[in-house]
Design a protein around this nucleic acid. Structure first.
Lengths: 357, 357
DNA sequence: ATAATTTACGAAATCGATTTCGTGTTGATA
DNA sequence: TATCAACACGAAATCGATTTCGTAAATTAT
């Protein structure tokens, strides 16, 4: 087993100083042609690569960005990660991921763990528990330490940072409008409790679209699911609630669900009740994941473009990181040249499939 | 904006030396009670946390493990990551992830990027292209540099390292046996091309189970899909092939598919052809993902326990990393105390749902 | 031939920690 | 009172790089 070779070892082998080796390898013209050649040849032979940790320490930057998300086994989040990784890699960065598991405490622990030098900045989406508690001090503390944050999807006004969100409101409006155009008269909404902002926005979009058509929203047509329990493991509860919902509202001819699981499950339940999709009930979901694509019938859905969200987030973060580089400490402290915080909105798109006419 | 405080700054503020501060913070009894108290109070006040990068450089270990996988938008892989992250976190490690995107080159680039000091070891699954080329020099090179690797799922005998695999062969046998017990007489296999070992093993399991029952395998009942093209985007091709397959083999009454997408799509196509599931055709898939759980009918499948695979992989890696610590360099070079490489097999489990009787 | 520049390199500081070793002061012992 | 150990702390090396500055030797200019 041969450990990686260091500058010092090269220097000793070749009988020169460490500084000479370093300069030769960076093609400094301070070093003679001869010496440079010799050193570079030797370095290539032994496959020398500078130690990243040493570089990080010296440069006071790690060239890695921290991703902090509530959950990784989730189509939307993994597409976002893919987007982040893509531009990060292209721009010479690595990504290190932490999972909060929707827990406030784990979110804090993860942030503190990474904020001690391991990363240059964060791309994150807030955990449900944090949103509930409305305690955002850890984000502000991190930013105050000079570590920039980009929030995506689940964002919050109380923190000053770049944000990338999907246009949940208009996505919902578009979806409901589509149902109305398709002659639905009684459109149901299947949503979550309100504390996660995205759910709230989608609900508002639904209401807006309904009211725009002069229809008065019927609260009986709104089903709120308590997603504080892990829904994946309470499928039967969900199905029971849905069955009850459909039975007590036999007039429903359209369904807008705030995520694809609710939409697909609604279709499943409706079919069991003898309803045909899209003939009797048309369904539109939110989030274009595997389920939407492969359900029977396949689901018309509002695509959030997760990968694009990830790409934009990473670009915003890296732009800011590299802007800081070029700024002198002077500019920096009085915020002169710092670009203002951006809230970037990624437009949604309706992917039409078999669950609508 | 206040940068994180360093030992040096604490030392200056308190009029002591850096070494004193360091020792006081680690409760060295070399330092008097008074001084220790004062320093610790000050450190707490300013929320001092040692800089990870500096520690990594000093200790020559980063306490982070590199994950290298072909694709992240994939249920199986994300459950594995979740498992890795879980034990990594518990044991004080971070994870940094790289995506090979099934590309040989990206795999190498990623490895080299991380192997220069950023990580202590790898947990990885080999890309398809690498498996095709059968070029594994980068893995061996990394291991030779003293960076241990744990491979999972897509592993290869040519590399000496710990491995965690699912029992693909027996999983397939179990599935097919189940179909046979359920009175299926003509069981079809829907599989991929053979170069990814897991596909091959599942195919072999199918053949084994069939032959054990004295049935002679009918090659007409085996459909091989070319998955070199991204299947997600060629759903229609897949469906056409499946429709043709079912039509030319009307005797099929059972289907075993090597992944859940094929299984679900097979169900979809069969239903379109007027066949009922499970009455006319029973279906079992491999990989217990969202699709299996939420398809209609829900899919009976062979669960691979991705999270467990991740947990075991991480444990194997960290065990080895920490074993190296305690060993003297002497032992180390002649391999005396090093534990042999382990190939750990995670048993599969059949999750029965609606697609079988 | 002397002064002024280049040229080509090395020494040392630095990034932020830990750790070994050395040393001045105090108190106990002979 | 001389000796010695214990105590409390600091200086310096180290991890692996980069970079500034200093300086002999070689070259050019005067």
């Amino acid at each position: 087993m041969k450990r990686k070779i260091t500058l010092k070892q090269i220097a000793k082998e070749l009988g020169v100083s460490v500084s000479t080796v370093s300069k030769a390898l960076s093609n400094s013209k301070e070093i003679s042609e001869d010496t440079t050649q010799k050193i570079q040849a030797f370095a290539k032979l032994y496959n020398y690569k500078p130690n990243n940790i040493a570089l990080s320490l010296k440069n006071r930057k790690t060239k890695t960005i921290g991703i902090l998300i509530p959950e990784i086994v989730h189509h939307f989040f993994s597409t976002v990660i893919r987007g982040i990784e893509r531009v990060a890699n292209r721009r010479g960065y690595n990504v290190i991921v932490g999972l909060s598991n929707e827990s406030f405490t784990k979110e804090i622990i993860n942030m503190e763990m990474l904020a001690n030098g391991s990363i240059d900045g964060f791309v994150l989406s807030i955990s449900k528990e944090t949103l509930l508690k409305q305690d955002y001090h850890h984000f502000n503390a991190t930013i105050n330490q000079g570590i920039p944050i980009v929030m995506f999807d689940r964002v919050v006004n109380e923190v000053d940072c770049d944000k990338v969100i999907v246009d949940d409101f208009n996505g919902a409006v578009k979806a409901v409008k589509k149902l109305i155009e398709n002659q639905c008269k009684n459109i149901a909404l299947i949503t979550t409790m309100d504390y996660v902002s995205v759910g709230r926005l989608r609900t508002q979009g639904y209401l807006e679209a309904i009211q725009n058509e002069g229809i008065i929203a019927d609260s009986n047509l709104i089903l709120k699911i308590d997603d504080s329990l892990d829904v994946e493991n309470h499928l039967d509860i969900l199905e029971t609630e849905l069955a009850h919902f459909f039975k007590s509202n036999p007039n429903i001819d359209g369904v807008f669900a705030v995520n694809e699981l609710y939409a697909v499950t609604a279709m499943k339940v409706a079919k069991k009740l003898g309803l045909n999709i899209p003939e009797d009930i048309q369904v539109i979901g939110f989030t274009d994941g595997v389920l939407s694509k492969h359900a029977t019938p396949s689901l018309t859905t509002v695509s959030q473009h997760g990968q694009k969200i990830g790409e934009q987030s990473a670009n915003l973060l890296i732009d800011r990181l590299e802007a800081e580089d070029t700024q002198t400490e002077q500019y920096f402290t009085n915020n002169e040249r710092k670009r203002d915080f951006i809230k970037m909105v990624i437009e949604t798109e309706i992917i039409e499939r078999e669950s609508t006419k």
